[in-house]
Amino acid sequence: MASDGVVVEIGKVTGSVGTTVEIPVYFRGVPSKGIANCDFVFRYDPNVLEIIGIDPGDIIVDPNPTKSFDTAIYPDRKIIVFLFAEDSGTGAYAITKDGVFAKIRATVKSSAPGYITFDEVGGFADNDLVEQKVSFIDGGVNVGNATPTKGATPTNTATPTK
């Protein structure tokens, strides 16, 4: 695992066909100046998982989280898009600690492993708008004895992609 920078880890949970599971997305290594904004994309298989919603985690402190935390689910493109932009203008609602960034709610549709993997990152910046190093650890849903650990090695991303 990367020793510096922010680590975004997609949790690994267990479920069975027809059940709804909650998959946490963790941030670790949050910089001392916090995270003022970030955007990134995960990939998944809508034939295996139906993403039914995404909720902000406990490290989102904006009293009205829909102003700073936004997501979009595109089953036709097989992606989930995340956007966080601190909304106070003063840094008061920045992410300042490690913990759960988001909770992905999904219904298991198939007995195949439900991988959720890193696809791309736009950027991560602290309260001074300084770009942060970030790496990703894939996860998803274990169905029966299947284990979604494909790509469990962190993917280092030093520069934003478009």
Score class of each variant (00 low, 15 high):
D4K: 04
V8G: 07
V8Q: 03
E9Y: 09
V13P: 09
T20S: 09
E22R: 14
I23H: 13
P24W: 09
P24S: 05
V25I: 09
P31E: 04
S32Q: 07
S32E: 15
A36I: 14
A36H: 00
C38A: 08
C38H: 00
F40G: 01
Y44Q: 06
Y44C: 15
D45Y: 05
P46G: 03
N47V: 09
L49P: 13
L49V: 04
L49C: 04
L49T: 03
E50K: 15
E50A: 05
I51N: 09
G53H: 11
D55N: 13
D58N: 06
D62I: 15
N64I: 05
N64Q: 15
P65Y: 12
D70Q: 15
D70M: 15
A72N: 00
Y74M: 01
P75F: 03
P75D: 02
D76T: 05
R77P: 12
K78L: 03
I79H: 01
I80N: 09
F82A: 01
F82H: 09
L83K: 00
A85L: 13
E86G: 01
D87T: 15
G89T: 03
T90V: 15
T90C: 11
K97F: 12
D98P: 08
D98S: 09
G99V: 10
G99L: 11
R105M: 03
R105Y: 14
R105H: 13
A106D: 01
A106F: 12
T107A: 09
T107C: 05
V108F: 11
S110D: 11
A112E: 08
A112T: 05
G114Y: 05
T117D: 07
F118Q: 10
F118M: 15
E120T: 02
G123N: 00
G123Q: 00
D126K: 01
L129P: 01
K133R: 11
D138H: 10
G139N: 15
V143F: 14
G144K: 12
N145A: 12
A146M: 13
P148Q: 03
P148S: 04
K150V: 09
G151L: 10
A152S: 10
T153H: 08
P154S: 11
P154V: 12
N156H: 13
N156E: 12
T157G: 12
A158L: 10
T159G: 09
P160L: 12
T161Q: 12
T161W: 14
